[in-house]
């Protein structure tokens, strides 16, 4: 069996008196689009932040391609890219300058930074607008720029927190297409979070349902619908959480 792209075991995280994660466990296989779905406050963002090395778990472990996110944090940062839900780009840089700035963090002997920027320019679909300062972009344009940044270095694992959050139908469709094409073309593994059940069903090959910091179901959309005898993921979720 090949090494999992992500392996979270018994993750717990507390912030003061708040328990955000409560023994969360799941595995992501290489080359798949894996979705974490759950309501607001379920622990999705906390999980992704731990995997992105931003915060440390209170207990449990998390590995990315065999690298421990606490002990090997800098190595993990070299093979992942993280797109936060409420991310922004530097307002006083142009779109292209932003992409170049981000690409230049990667060693030139291992990456073709120039090609990566050209690639990002292509997938962002921003064309000539890349010459303009980021502060002139609409929300949708900004999100496409950020997604292009997250994918341009062809990370082994792309961690995307609510990638289509706040976007209209057209921009959300474009962003989903980018993610699907990139995985198909480059074999990048994607771990994303969403509370949009339709989006997850369209995008993800497998998923984990999260509620109150724990996984309450894991499998392909078809498997989960079959287990819960539901016609869609929304019903699966309501059935699994008994919230309905």
């Amino acid at each position: 069996m090949s090494q999992p792209a992500t392996e979270a075991k018994g993750l717990e995280k507390t912030f003061g008196n708040i328990r955000a994660l409560n023994g969360l466990t799941f595995t992501v296989t290489k080359g798949e689009i894996f979705g974490l779905i759950g309501p607001n406050g379920a622990g999705k963002t906390t999980t992704l932040r731990i995997l992105a090395t931003l915060i440390k778990p209170s207990s449990g472990s998390a590995k990315v391609f065999g690298l421990d996110v606490e002990k090997n944090a800098s190595e993990v940062r070299g093979i992942i890219s993280y797109l936060p839900e409420e991310a922004g780009a530097y307002r006083n840089l142009s779109g292209r300058e932003y992409l170049e700035f981000m690409a230049n963090f990667y060693p030139v002997n291992s990456y073709d930074n120039h090609a990566a920027v050209e690639d990002a320019a292509e997938i962002s679909g921003l064309g000539e607008r890349l010459r303009d300062r980021v502060k002139t972009y609409s929300k949708g344009m900004g999100r496409r720029l950020l997604l292009a940044r997250a994918l341009m270095m062809k990370p082994r694992l792309a961690v995307l927190d609510e990638p289509t959050s706040g976007l209209d139908v057209v921009h959300a469709y474009h962003v989903r297409r980018i993610i699907q094409d990139y995985v198909k073309t480059y074999g990048v593994t994607v771990l994303l979070s969403s509370h949009n059940m339709l989006e997850v069903e369209l995008l993800c090959s497998r998923m984990a349902l999260i509620n109150e910091g724990r996984v309450i179901g894991e499998g392909t959309p078809q498997e989960l619908k079959s287990i819960h005898r539901a016609s869609n993921l929304e019903e699966v979720f309501m059935e699994a959480t008994k919230l309905g």
Binding site: A52, T53, L54, R77, P84, A87, F105, Y106
Partner: peptide
């Protein structure tokens, strides 16, 4: 501007 989290996950100490 919500750029810090992204910066902190880049390959720089």
């Amino acid at each position: 501007e919500k750029t810090l989290e992204t910066l902190l996950t880049m390959p720089i100490s």
